[in-house]
Design a protein around this nucleic acid. Structure first.
Ligand code: MN
Ligand code: MN
Ligand code: ZN
Ligand code: ZN
Lengths: 136, 136
DNA sequence: TACAATTTTGTAATCATTACATAATTGAAT
DNA sequence: ATTCAATTATGTAATGATTACAAAATTGTA
């Protein structure tokens, strides 16, 4: 049962415009934590009039409606993903790939720690990935 | 026994130039996770010729020599700290303050997870802090 | 003093992101 | 179908942190 971008948008109360559908479909098919620019460069191929501002607007809408998550494992650009399950991220400093680590969620969302109300929880690991290690 | 900036630099093999001493002293006294610009704006008061590039160079040197840690809890700027103990960070979305959470380290540094070699481990939480909650 | 190595400075470039005004599209009401 | 307001998309210009790079200053040592 393939997830339909349109249904997901409607369910979250986001009106399913053409561009929003395209961005969400991209995120459903590409689970490699793309940047705004990654999405733009792919979609501009079939939508030549597409504006990068539209990508930023769309992603902002998605994140605010809880449809998509953004995270700052890199210091220069934001990455996005459609993956609501809590999980940690691992960045390989050699090849730049970002891996999911589902077993290391340890999620503190909605808990109260030291009096602080936790709304969001990101675990960012980095080092050398399995692939890169095996090449050496 | 107050930690002496000069001794710390020498121990880590970083030559203790005037500017480096000033930056490290700032970090030793200000445990509020400052940005490069925070440090610059304070030090320019007593060093009017100070260049912001020097701040960036110095912080880069410190991070590379393992003297200082940097982290990306914000999407637009890097924050720095002198605190070698593993701990998590909590960002208040209301007041912008960044708190330390020493009990939630759960550090995976130098471990191998799913074949990946973990060199660095950041835990970034966000929400509404104790102070801001009590004001409501 | 001479000189090479290190450190600092200043300017300009880079690059992701945002601001904002304008244009296009949509969807309901007439 | 037409009108009109609301939403969505576009384009350009600005912002702001960070980096590149070359020149200047400082340091340590012969
Ligand atoms: Mn992920
Ligand atoms: Mn800290
Ligand atoms: Zn790798
Ligand atoms: Zn607060």
């Amino acid at each position: 049962m393939k997830e339909l971008a349109k249904d997901i948008l409607i369910e979250k109360g986001v009106s399913p415009s053409y561009h929003r559908l395209k961005v969400l479909e991209y995120l459903l098919e590409n689970r490699n934590h793309p940047s705004a620019d990654d999405i733009y460069r792919k979609l501009i191929e079939e939508i030549p009039t597409l504006s990068k501002t539209t990508i930023y607007n769309t992603l902002k809408t998605f994140v605010e409606s809880g449809l998509v998550e953004s995270f700052n494992i890199l210091q220069n650009e934001v990455r996005y993903e459609y993956n609501l399950n809590p999980h940690a991220h691992f960045l390989c400093k050699k090849c730049g790939k970002i891996y999911d680590l589902p077993d290391y969620d340890n999620c503190l969302k909605n808990q109260i720690i030291a009096g602080h109300e936790i709304h969001d929880h990101q675990i960012n690991l980095s080092g050398i990935c399995k692939n890169c290690r095996e090449k050496e």
